[in-house]
Structure formats: structure tokens, C-alpha cells
Design a protein around this nucleic acid. Sequence first.
DNA 1: ATAGGGATAT
Length: 673
Amino acid sequence: MVSQVTCLADGLEFGHKLQANSVCPLHSSSKEEGALHATTFLVNNRVRAGSNSTKSQKPFFQTLKSLTRSGKLEEAVQLIESLPPNLRNTETYSIVLHACISHKSLEHGRRLYLELLAKDQHSQRLLKEATLKSKLITLFSVCGYLEEARSIFENTFNSETVHESVWVAMAIAYSRNGCLKEALLLYTDMLWHHVKPGNFAFSLALKACADLNEIDIGRGVHAQVIKSYEEPDQVVNNALLALYAECGCFNEVLQLFGKLPKRNVVSWNSLIASLIKQNQVFEALNLFRRMQREKMGFSWVTLTSILAVCARLTALHFGKEIHAQIVKSCIRADILLLNSLMDMYVKCGVVDCGRMLFNRMRNKDLTTWNTMLTGYAINGCMDEAMGLFNEMVSSGTRPDDVTFVALLSGCSHGGLTETGQAYFRKMEMDFGISPTLEHYACLVDILGRAGKLEEALEVVRNMPMKPGGSIWGSLLNSCRLHGEVSLGEVIAKRLFEIEPNNAGNYVILSNIYAKAGMWDSVNMVREMMQRRGIKKEVGCSWVKVKNKVETFVAGGGTEFRKSVQYKKMWFELAEAMETHGYVPDTSVVLHDIDEAMKSIWVCGHSERLATMYALINSGAGMPIRIAKNLRVCADCHSWIKVVSQVTGRTVVLRDTTRFHHFKDGECSCKDYW
DNA sequence: ATAGGGATAT
């Protein structure tokens, strides 16, 4: 919860100061004076050496605590090293090890460890203790030294009993370093050693199952949770939710969520993430509203998920509300959230806002750069994208494979054939990134769209991996663009074997036939689809006018088209359009009907209906934002171009993969898509 | 000590 986070953060800081002041009331306890404390103590200690009273331990602990708190690890370690054996105990070492863990100081931690190993029997005994062992395991694992962590853990087996906490520390060590299989194996190992798992162990095992997508093992752990002597706590219950969510068991998620005795923000977030995974984005939004109604509040994580929904729905208005929530909360948003916010803006076609956020972000990570680059690429701003890429490189951020997917896809959308090929070479030669299937798909698309189908096929033949549906699909589309009937037939045949249920492939093939006037073949494809029970996805566009989202389906909107306003607007437009030389391109209609019928048919396309609706129902200067579930129809594209010229409106249209910004009779895609 | 979130081709 955002408001609680603020309080918590304030409280922490405040509490910290209080404690620091109470440590050594005689001296002011500023960090700079830590050294003074150490020296004072050393002097005192030498004088008092040999005396064994517990009284003398107290100031020593305080000094040690104040040293570690102010990050003076070197002096803290020196202090321990100078101590007589009787003053070294679990607590002493714990304090300093804890500080080493939070500062990730392998150097000091290892010194303590080696010291313990080398010293007398007393310290050997200390090493066997669960607390110290766990701390040492944690220390080495946060510094990335898993093997050393494991060796400390293994020494455990020589002693008689192993406390659960040591197992847990080792499991966390694996989990932290992404070794999920090892974490899960450790859990089973633990069971073999007759150590009863508690809630900590459960949550770790469940997390490992979730990340490995091991739903069956996960169910087994769930059974153990139920049988356990300990009641599952919130963390275990949330880990169970996350497990079922991650493995796509949506019913279990709902059931479990309903039965939980208590839910916190994390539980709700998991449910939201699960809904998004199920593509139930509107339900996710409703759930977010319900969270607020039930005074659950939200966290940065919630907002990140919701922003992703806004980006997907081009729900700019709602996304802006989330932005306002972030500003209102008064705490600096974390980098993940800001990246999502930026992503929302660029995915809603508002590149400038995205760039403003980008400029104002103090810490940028790789995703920040990649998100902005993707934003430019899908909005057809390739000059800006290339400029940003240069900035990225000179700022010292190493581009990765995602960076190049963004650049290459941008080049393919923008028809920048040579530039795209150059980036493809550059990627491997200058940056040592070997191309993945996605990169090859982009390259094939770049070449195919430019009409270089032979070269594209050559790439497919020579690439090291097996081409999938995406690559053949892109080639098929290139055949459509360049009227390659026979090659298209060969590719389509292969595609029907790989993905027999993808309606898009059948549609493109019939497009190819229709363009060539081969109506028999068009009918043949249609019959094939009917025989196989494949339904073409219905074209659907949505547009927001006056805070309400209006949806249009191709061929629908009959009432709207009968209305007086529609007819009036249509009449006004038609005249102006004709003077601007708009002629309907009817080749996009896949039915063998006469020209007059075809031009009526294209008027029923969903993007056209949405544009008409917005023209009628929104203020004259307002930009029109439309989203569509399929690729824009070629005729609608040229129609909207002229509309933007005639009416002086900006139309921003997002189709499946990218944006078209129509302004003054031109489109940002330069008619290349 | 343990649970939830962001960028990717057609």
C-alpha cells in the first residue's frame, strides 16, 4: 500500500536515528566518529583485558553495533580480531556478519570466516551453530559465491542435527542466484533427512515450482502444506496463489483466493497478474477498482500490472489516472514502475510524453532504453530511434538482443532495408550478440517487404535454427504485397501444416488470389476454412469519445450508418475527398462482387466506422485515437489519409503491431506496412 | 531469511 509504504519508510528512518543516538549517549554518534569509538574501545579493552565480567561486554557491543551501522566494516572486523576468545560469541559475529551481508562485503566476511576456521576449538564450535552457519551461507550467496556457500552447508553434515534454518538459508541462496532446480532438490533432500519443513521452506519450494512450471511437484508441496503441523501463513498462501497463477491453473487461483482467511496486497496482485495472463484484461481493471473499494490500497506492483493493461488496450485516459496516482503518492516511483508508465504512453501513441519521462528518469536501466526504442519503432519515428540508439551506446549502456529486435522491427516497418541489414550485421560484429529467431524473422521481413524474396529465402535456408510459423507467415505476407502467387502457394501449404488453425494464413492466401483475380481459388480457400472449422477473426476497432469507449465490428454499426449525422458527414466528406483525388481501392474485398458493391463493403470496415463516429462526436480540433485488432485495410488507410487532410484532424490508429499517425494527408508509416 | 511487477518478431 502506497500510503503505508510512506509511513513505513519514514518510520524506519526515524527509528534508525533514535537507535543510533541511544547507542552511545556520551559521544555524538555521527558516522565520522565511528573510528574514534573503535580506538577508544581498543584502549579500554587492553587496559581491562583479562577481566571477565559481563559488564565489560556491554559497551563493546554498543561500539560494534555503531560501527557496523555506519558501515565501518574494516574497523568492526579489526575490533573482533583484537578480542580475547571469551568475548567472541555468536552474537558478536552475528552483528558483523549481518553488516557484511547488507554491504555485500565478501572481503570482510571471508576474513571473519577464515579466522573462525583457523582459531581454537571454541570458534570451531561457534561455526557449528545454526545462526552463524546460516549467516555465512547468506553472505557468500549474496556475493554470488554459491560453491563456497554450499561447502559451508555441507560441513553441517558432520554434526549430528541440522537445524531447519540452515536448510532454508541454503535454499534461499540457490533461489537468489536463479538455481531453482537445486533449490527444489535441496527441499527433497531435506525431507530425506527427516527435517520437517516449516513455512519458510514451503514458500521457497513453491516459488521454485512456480518458476520451473512444475505444477505436479507444486501440488505435492501443497499437500504437505495442508498436512503440516504449522498453519500456512500469508507468505505460503501467496506463494500457492503465485504457483497456480504461473502454471495457468486459473480455477485453482480463484478457488484458493476465495478461501484464504486473510489477503494482502500481494494476494490481490497475484490474482490480477493471473487474470492478465488469461487475457481477461477488463476483469483485471475491475479487480483493481474493487481493491480500492474494499480499502485494500495498492502497491507499485499493482500499478505496474495495471499500466500494462492500459498499454494493451490503448487506454490512455486510464493510464493517465494511474500516472496521477503515482504523482499524488509523493514517493519516488521505482524504475520498474516508471518503465511501465513510459511503455503505456508510447503504446498509446503519445511518444512525446514517453520521451519526457525518459529524459526525467535519473536512473535508467537497459529496459528503459529498450522501451523508448520500441516506442519510437512502433510509432514510425526511426530517425529518433537511431539517434537514441547512438545516445545509448555513447552513454555506456550495452545494447542487448531486445534492443536489436526493436531496431530491426522498426526498420522493417519503415522500409529501411539497407539500414536494417546494416544493424543486423552490426549486432553480431560490433556487439557480439548472436541473432535469435526473432532477429531472423525481422531480417526476413525487411527483405521480403522490399520485394527481395529470393534473398529472404536465402536467409531462411542459411539460418542455424528451424524457421517457425512466424517466419513463414512474414514471407507469405511479403508474397501478398508483391503479388507472388506461386511462391505464396508453396509457403501457405507449409504454414497450413505447421499451424493449421491460424486463420490469418488462410486470409492472406485468399488475399493473394483476390489481388490476382483468381476467384475460384479464393472460393477454394474459403471452403477449406469452412471444412476445417476455422473462423476468421472479425475486424474490430474501438475509439474513446467523451470518456466512453465505443466498439465497432466490421459490417456492424447499422443503426449508426442509418443516422442523419452519419449521412450528413458522409456527404460532406465525399465531395471534398473526390477533389483530393480519393478513389476507393476495392482489391481488398475478398468477394467476387461488382465494383459498386465493393466500395460499399469497405465502408463497413470497423476502422472507418470508428473514424466516422469520432469525427461526428468529438470537438473539431481533437485528435482521434483508434485501436484495431487486425492490420489496417489498405483502402481505409488511404481513406483516413485524405480525411486527415480534409478535416485537419490528427488520427492515431494502432493496429496489431504498430501505429499509424495520420496528419495533413500523410501517414507516419510512409505507406509501408 | 520466505510471496507479487516492466521492454521482444508476424
